[in-house]
Design a protein around this nucleic acid. Structure first.
Lengths: 356, 356
DNA sequence: CACATTTTCGTGTTCGGACACAAAGGTACA
DNA sequence: TGTACCTTTGTGTCCGAACACGAAAATGTG
């Protein structure tokens, strides 16, 4: 079958022949470049209307011989944490689309220090780049950066959470509210009649991330709609060494003898799981977020029952793809991209795959 | 940033310069073609060892100017059924990789008539093709075709289920046994103390598909390991108009008053769900397989509680990708590809997305 | 050593599209 | 009618890799 010519493929040359003009003219029409007479333009457009021309993107990228630089702005993190997976996705996309002549560079900010976000942004702006992937922080801070990007007409994609009013090109995230709602349904199945504990991560006294708040909101909404009488207790624990405050936790559990299930709206649930393990507390059903090695370990040991995963890998990969589609392939891009809300259990976790 | 030359990219030309030979010689070494002196070969191989050469696949595909034809052999089906989604994935891959000069053609067989499989295979063999995606039927039948493929050295990928002893290039499927095991865990959560009903699809008296059998096997294993005392009732229903045999079903439900949950190990669970709806039977928890419009409708109405999805779209897309990686990009391919075992509920189904 | 044959190797063309450049056509004005 | 200038159009080169072809070098044979 090889060595044959496929009839289906239409080239610029074919269009030129059909329209009775040269390839140069077709090229000018296709790209909306000037210096084409009305007569020629119409001839070409007629042909384009009749046929379905799909340019060979690889030939195109090859010929244009351009180089694209994408920057990422992510929170600082330790290896093995949530953002490591996002980065893996980004890097995978970079190598996968390497032949388009792209490269990606990651910048970091301290999520607990908003000045740090702007400092990193400033560093980036001293260099040239064609697109950015941003994990947004507070609106007032993020907007300072994105306004400059809008001015320079540099597209940006939000990742992991979204701020629609800053008008990103697109975003990749999970619907936090709905995922909290789903979590509530699942927790109620695990422990239908139990009081519920919520383990909050706080930084200097208040919940840092919007995501955590939105998940809790969805969770509470489900309870209001379906199980109004459920009693909920909340324990606030500092982000540093989350779950290692054994004395506070002992007290919390001792005070609520009828609380046999709980949830943690961030990826640090292993902190609680490991506490339960230390205390040999097997009668407590626990849920949390994200496919991290330490969380998975708890799942396998039975100290976490369910994890909700949000495909960080896919978010990273997808964000790069969005920029490529928009800048290089000139395709329409989806303005919103929600990752699925997935339930991981000891029984299905081995098949939660990270490949594309 | 555009218009710059990226330092990182290495071309054949660069290798030639470093090795002090011409591009022709480098090309011969890279492809293992003859007519290269030992001396030149070593010079080139030295350079290749030092650097990490990643050929520009798009330039390569462009230059080779080959055309690849892939065939699929799938079961006949009506629109909207499971296999429609697989086909969508295949077609998406075809258009996505169109610039590699590939095209895909689908052949069908009657899953209840094994002669039909071989007839379709024969039809295919009268034409030329470079790779096949096969949904295997019985081993004895499938092997007749795959042996011929091995002789001709045409690679084939199994989809939806696997027969390892026929040595496919790769396969894409869900682990049926584990997915049944997972289903059992979930059903036990839904109705912890209830007797269980299994709704089997049978054709002329016996279960047609391996997949259904393996899922049931996994299901029973979970029950044996964790809930030995669970009472299970089985109802066999013919594939034609599955779930429309109201009289038989009425009898089944009447006979088992303590049976408040059930499962159906194939994608036709909507048949049972719609029965429950007609009978206004809200006290029965039902599980089934696959993201089909009629199943989703049952999920939304509350007559099916959980669906297990198996990414048919991804299986189709992935199978084409395997053939491309192997034949065109000459990459190592994964020999086994399991799709995740995903739980769909009314709360998360809207985010079960089919995009890549 | 002359000549034929085989092996080795470099050059040139090709793929489809982007873009530079030059040639041709058109218009304006003295 | 000639010249200047702008618009329109076609041609040629390039991107990176594949492969055909022919030249050069090595080997074989009488």
């Amino acid at each position: 079958m090889q060595e044959e010519i496929q009839q289906g493929r239409i080239r610029i040359k074919d269009i030129a022949e059909k329209a009775g003009v040269s390839v140069g003219t077709v090229d000018r029409v296709l790209h909306g470049r000037p210096n084409v007479s009305e007569k020629s333009r119409i001839k070409v457009e007629e042909v384009l209307k009749r046929i379905d021309y799909q340019p060979n993107m690889y030939a195109s990228a090859l010929a244009s011989n351009k180089y694209y630089k994408f920057f990422c702005l992510f929170p600082q993190h330790k290896p093995g944490e949530y953002w490591t997976e996002v980065e893996k996705g980004v890097m995978r996309a970079q190598s996968k689309f390497n032949d388009f002549n792209i490269s990606v560079e990651i910048f970091y900010y301290d999520p607990f220090d908003s000045q740090s976000f702007l400092k990193a942004a400033e560093q980036m702006q001293q260099r040239e780049f064609d697109g950015v992937i941003i994990n947004p922080t507070k609106v007032e801070v993020t907007s300072q950066f994105t306004e400059q990007l809008h001015e320079k007409e540099i597209p940006f994609v939000f990742i992991d959470s979204n701020i629609p009013e800053l008008h990103p090109l697109s975003f990749w995230a999970q619907n936090s509210q709905k995922s909290g709602y789903f979590a509530a349904r699942m927790l109620k199945l695990l422990a239908p009649n139990s009081e519920v504990g919520i383990f909050r991560q706080v930084v200097s006294g208040h919940v840092g991330s919007n995501q955590q708040l939105e998940r809790e909101e969805g969770f509470l909404q489900y309870m209001k709609e379906h199980h109004k009488d459920t009693i909920i207790h909340t324990l606030e624990l500092p982000a540093k060494n989350f779950g290692r405050q054994f004395d506070i936790m002992d007290k919390f559990f001792a005070e609520h003898k009828n609380m046999h299930c709980g949830i943690c709206f961030n990826s640090k649930v292993f902190g609680i799981g490991e506490y339960l393990e230390k205390r040999h507390k097997k009668d407590f059903r626990l849920m949390g977020y994200d496919h991290l090695e330490r969380n998975n370990e708890c799942l396998r040991n039975g100290f976490v029952d369910f994890l909700i995963a949000q495909h960080p890998w896919k978010q990273g990969y997808g964000s790069v793809q969005i920029l490529i589609d928009y800048l290089i392939l000139k395709k329409e891009v989806m303005r919103y991209n929600y990752v699925p809300i997935e339930l991981l259990t000891a029984e299905n976790i081995e098949f939660y795959n990270k490949t594309n």
